[in-house]
Amino acid sequence: MKEITVQELKEKMDAGEDFQLIDVREDFEYEMSNLGGELIPLSGIMIESGKIDKNKPVIVQCRSGKRSAAAIMQLEGQGFTNLYNLKGGMLAWAEEIDPEMPVY
């Protein structure tokens, strides 16, 4: 499974690179804090897979990287090859990029 660090994600955001960010956490988690990605909770990732771009890099994120890894494994089974797991998820983002971000 391909991974990307929070530092690499921040660089891509700052550079305005073209990629899709998918957040697989639950609604209440997303409302607490998010990175502006599209919310598709893990439980619905296969039903909503049509919303995921196959033609550009897609970064999948969650709280710690575990649910996003599970989502990627499911999606790769459906033929996706352009997925990257955000290593450490929101916890790493809060620790390394934005210490003011609320996490639980």
Rank of each mutant, 00 (worst) to 15 (best):
E3F: 15
T5E: 08
Q7Y: 11
Q7C: 05
L9N: 08
K10R: 14
K10P: 11
M13H: 14
G16Q: 01
D18A: 14
I22W: 05
I22G: 02
I22E: 04
I22D: 00
D23S: 13
D23C: 11
R25A: 12
E26Y: 09
D27E: 15
D27K: 15
E31K: 15
E31L: 15
M32P: 09
L35F: 01
L35I: 07
G37F: 13
L42I: 14
S43G: 10
S43D: 11
S43K: 13
M46W: 05
M46C: 10
E48Q: 11
E48W: 07
S49I: 05
G50T: 13
I52S: 01
D53T: 01
D53F: 07
N55C: 04
N55Q: 10
P57W: 09
P57D: 05
P57Y: 09
P57H: 04
I59Y: 01
I59V: 07
Q61A: 11
C62W: 02
C62M: 04
R63S: 08
R63G: 08
R63C: 05
R63A: 09
S64Q: 00
G65W: 03
K66A: 08
R67M: 10
R67S: 07
A70R: 04
A71R: 05
I72E: 00
M73P: 01
M73D: 02
Q74H: 08
L75S: 00
E76L: 03
E76I: 06
G77C: 10
Q78W: 02
Q78F: 03
G79L: 08
N82Y: 03
L83D: 02
Y84N: 04
N85R: 03
G89Q: 00
M90Q: 06
M90R: 06
L91A: 04
A92D: 07
W93H: 04
A94L: 05
A94T: 11
A94V: 10
E95W: 02
E96F: 01
D98F: 11
D98C: 08
